[in-house]
């Protein structure tokens, strides 16, 4: 299967800040790659280089076989981009936004109008289609923006944090829409800060930090690397913390972490470990306030991959990056 998106050693600096420090990516045709990382990891810079909004300082990239530096317009003909900040004109109605985009893709007026109606219908915006997009909710605006990216039915779709800032319902609607698209064979690159989102939508995940890929694999592979699921226990009495630490230690893959009266550790088979731990705690007579099985979050993935928290990451060339 040919790679629809391919980047080799992409480098981009902003003055002395390194946004991309040699990023490699490949997205085979018809698959979904999620670029997962915290704010400032270089996700948006990578997307902007691939979408020809930025010229990289080093490395090379092709989209649908077209070089992003040598033939940016050729790339633009083959991609649809939907950004973190909805790129819609707020004074224009949804319909006008979409017909404008169609005509700028070079469609005849009539075709652009038909396409606009089709997309409004598909994105559940028919009722709002003739209202200025200024009046739209965040979720509607984002759907309109995504519709804008699809006007020319491009073979490659690039979505930069498509659900950041959306509420739960709008996020789920967005996921549904994206899954449908992928089902119809579009190649998709999406960036996200949420492991869950990457998990639901992507075939492959590249974890990015400090402008380079620090891990890649399927969601399951990454979670396994991270140490899989975690068991967390909160006890009523501080005196029981040591007992819990000992009992949980039996199942733990690595160290057991203690924070005040909360004890947690990564475990292999979460459900089985939890059941046995609860039995043991019962036998020992430990009063438990709260107990839970937690799937790894981006924070856990980050902590295990980089040794630093996701939200303390800064883009820069001075931080350590494990091999």
């Amino acid at each position: 299967m040919a790679d629809m998106i391919r980047a080799e050693g992409l480098v981009k600096h902003y003055k002395d800040v390194v946004a991309l420090a040699g990023l490699d990516l490949s997205v085979p045709e018809g698959t979904v790659l999620a670029l997962l990382g915290p704010n400032g990891a270089g996700k948006t810079t990578a997307v902007r280089c691939l979408a020809t909004l930025l010229v990289p300082d080093g490395g090379s990239a092709t989209v649908a076989g077209v070089d992003v530096v040598a033939d940016p317009r050729g790339v633009r003909r083959r991609i649809g981009l939907s950004g973190q900040y909805a790129a819609v004109d707020e004074y224009l109605t949804g319909y006008e936004n979409l017909t404008m985009v169609g005509r700028l893709y070079g469609m005849p007026k009539k075709r652009s109008q038909e396409r606009a109606r089709e997309l409004l219908d598909r994105f559940d915006l028919v009722d709002a289609g003739d209202r200025p997009s200024k009046t739209y909710s965040g979720g509607m605006r984002r759907r309109l923006d995504l519709a804008g990216a699809l006007v020319a039915a491009p073979p490659v779709l690039i979505l930069d944090e498509p659900t950041t800032g959306l509420d739960v319902r709008a996020r789920q609607q967005m996921w549904e829409v994206i899954r449908e698209l992928v089902g119809s064979g579009t190649t998709l690159l999406l960036t996200t800060q949420y492991l869950e989102e990457a998990d639901r939508l992507a075939d492959d995940i590249v974890v990015i930090d400090q402008g380079r890929a620090i891990a890649r694999g399927t969601a399951d592979e990454l979670k396994a690397q991270t140490g899989g699921e975690r068991v967390e226990v909160v006890v009523a009495q501080a005196g029981d913390v040591e007992t819990v630490r000992r009992l949980l230690g039996v199942h733990a893959l690595g160290d057991v972490q203690v924070d005040d009266r909360s004890v947690g550790a990564a475990v292999r088979d979460g459900t089985a470990a939890l059941r046995r731990l609860l039995d043991d705690l019962d036998t020992e007579g430990v009063r438990v306030l709260d107990v839970g099985l937690r799937r790894p979050t981006l924070d856990d993935v980050f902590l295990s991959l980089t040794g630093h928290d996701a939200d303390t990451t800064t883009t820069g060339d001075d931080a350590e990056v494990p091999a």
Binding site: R73, D89, L104
Partner: peptide, 17 residues
């Protein structure tokens, strides 16, 4: 300043349009 400029720039339209 607005997001719409990103849309324009990602389209295969004339750069001077």
């Amino acid at each position: 300043q607005k997001g719409i400029i990103d849309r324009f720039r990602s389209l295969p339209m004339s750069r001077t349009a």
